[in-house]
């Protein structure tokens, strides 16, 4: 049906490539854009192009940035001795949002997964080791995801970093704050019981 309106069909096809967006939602979005004033469409198109033109990876921490090194790496108010390792930029953003960490970061850009052909060489491991050999870091906080792959990555890191005499810590995990125990899934409760602590 859309074949008779090629420009519309093309937009739908492009939008449907987005994660979590199927053909139905893509069609809805396309109709929405069609109704929008031209300036709005131009603003969106411009924003997308600007994203591709301006954003790159920080050469120090490999977070996404418009300036290299990134504002976090150049912020003088941060503790040089604390380094937090995450898998992806969005993980860094989640920790920043909490305002609980005032050290610096290193984004691995993935986790170890031999099945997907991802080993240390495919991640920003050697760059991390270089940074650590600089000597300023006292503690490495490993904040990779709590998946099988994230855990294995953390263990690999610990094995590589401990010989350097740097303390390696891991994010705690268990029951989410502010949640009722009764609504937490079994596996999480299980882990929380296993990882219980003295009061």
């Amino acid at each position: 049906m859309l074949d008779s309106i090629p420009s519309f069909a093309r937009l739908v096809a492009e939008l449907a490539k987005f994660p979590g967006i199927g053909k139905k939602t893509a069609t809805r979005l396309a109709f929405f854009l069609l109704r929008q004033p031209r300036a709005e469409a131009e603003a969106l198109a411009g924003a997308i192009l600007e994203l591709k033109e301006k954003i790159g990876f920080c050469s120090r921490c490999f977070h996404i940035t418009e300036s290299d090194p990134c504002p976090i790496c150049t912020d003088p108010g941060r503790d040089e001795g604390l380094l937090c390792v995450v898998e992806q930029p969005q993980d860094l953003i989640a920790i920043e949002r909490s305002r609980s960490f005032r050290g610096r970061y290193h984004v691995l850009q993935g986790a170890l997964s031999p099945l997907d052909g991802i080993g240390p060489d495919q991640l920003r491991f050697s760059e991390l080791l270089q940074r650590l050999k600089g000597g300023a870091v006292r503690e490495l906080l490993v904040a990779t995801n709590f998946t099988v792959e994230g855990d294995a990555t953390a263990l690999y890191l610990a094995g590589q970093v401990r010989p350097l005499g740097i303390r390696v810590t891991r994010l705690a995990h268990g029951i989410p704050t502010g949640s009722d125990l009764e609504f937490v899934d079994d596996a999480t409760v299980n882990r929380a019981v296993e990882g219980r602590r003295d009061l």
Binding site: L112, G119, Y156
Partner: peptide, 12 residues
């Protein structure tokens, strides 16, 4: 793969 790569997976 070398032992260093295998080790974390052995642990897990």
């Amino acid at each position: 793969a070398e032992d260093a790569q295998l080790r974390p997976w052995s642990q897990k």
